[in-house]
Nucleic acid binder design. Structure first.
Lengths: 186, 186
DNA sequence: GTCTATATCAAGATAGAC
DNA sequence: GTCTATCTTGATATAGAC
């Protein structure tokens, strides 16, 4: 029996990069197979369709963010500002690449109208992120204001990533981080 | 000689709607032809490729915004706040649809890494918009602040449109308008 | 579990009749 | 200027050998 070349988790990781840089419709099953060193036919042993692998990528992102990234907001040994700083940095590390932008943003605009399943997972990702941010902003804002600020931070994050790709410079994202931090006491 | 069914301008108008709702890669030449009531083969009489029609759509948007939308910022018979309000409304009317979001945002994330020509036109669109917004914000801000606020307004606009599509509600865009208006004296 | 081979279909684009 | 017919390619997906 032949050697197993990859694990499902490894495939999901590589597929994440491919989808982020090429988008959904412009990514072929060959692209995905090649990225993990499999023949196209072999790829179907792990995922039955392109929709299935995309869903697995989104679900893995959601789980990772909920288990490894969002919980930092409850670390009371750190100042709210420090927690926000770490949250934003981790989010960037998980979702962004310098050349390709945000995988969630890229996939959202391309698929939200066509694949309700994708939209559901993406919505959950944004919802937990907004909850985490709201928790931090509550340290010096009313509940209503904290929620609005959290939504605004997410909105600016995605908008800034788009602008950074058009202008090919990072300053928009940096300033977005700074504005978010300015919402908390220093 | 056969009847001419459509003009180039009409095609560009219909194609704008199709590209906005289906994106670039998921739009086929058949989709475009069908939208204007032509056979696929006939469509090539007007545009030699999908890239060409997309470029024409972006260029037309750019020209329309520069000639018909952005100039409102120089209408000194109106208050800066009223001018901003009209500018934002016209931008929305030109670029957005309730179901499909912003054509510029949609096309940007999908093509910016692949088609430098698209990126050039899109960048010009954002640049003129930022210039127009900066002009308005100059009425009560320093040059540096006005530019930052203008960039922030654009960023929030695109981010808010994305969020409004995920959550399927309009409030994000409304609040984005309100925040922009709050930058000017009432 | 991986491979090669292949079925099926739709895409972008062209040719030529009217 | 529009049509039908067609070429060519690349896509998703499946079948079956090893």
């Amino acid at each position: 029996m032949p050697l197993q070349k990859v694990t499902k988790k490894e495939i999901i990781g590589k597929a994440t990069d491919v989808f982020r840089s090429k988008g959904y419709h412009n990514t072929s099953m060959s692209d995905l197979a090649e990225a993990v060193g499999l023949q196209k036919g072999s790829f179907y042993h792990y995922f039955e369709s392109k929709e299935a692998i995309m869903k697995a990528v989104l679900t893995e992102l959601k789980n990772y963010l909920n288990e490894r990234v969002n919980p930092v907001v409850f670390d009371e040994s750190l100042s709210p500002r420090e927690r926000l700083s770490r949250l934003l940095k981790s989010f960037g590390k998980t979702l962004l690449s310098k050349e390709s932008g945000c995988i969630i943003g890229n996939i959202t605009l391309e698929t939200v109208a066509i694949y309700p399943d994708f939209r559901t997972i993406i919505k959950e990702i944004f919802e937990s992120w907004i909850i985490a941010l709201t928790h931090l902003y509550l340290s010096n804002h009313s509940e209503e204001d904290a929620l609005k600020l959290a939504q605004q931070t997410v909105i600016e994050f995605e908008g800034a990533v788009m602008m950074s790709r058009i202008y090919q410079e990072n300053s928009f994202i940096q300033e977005c981080y700074q504005r978010a931090l300015a919402n908390l006491p220093s």
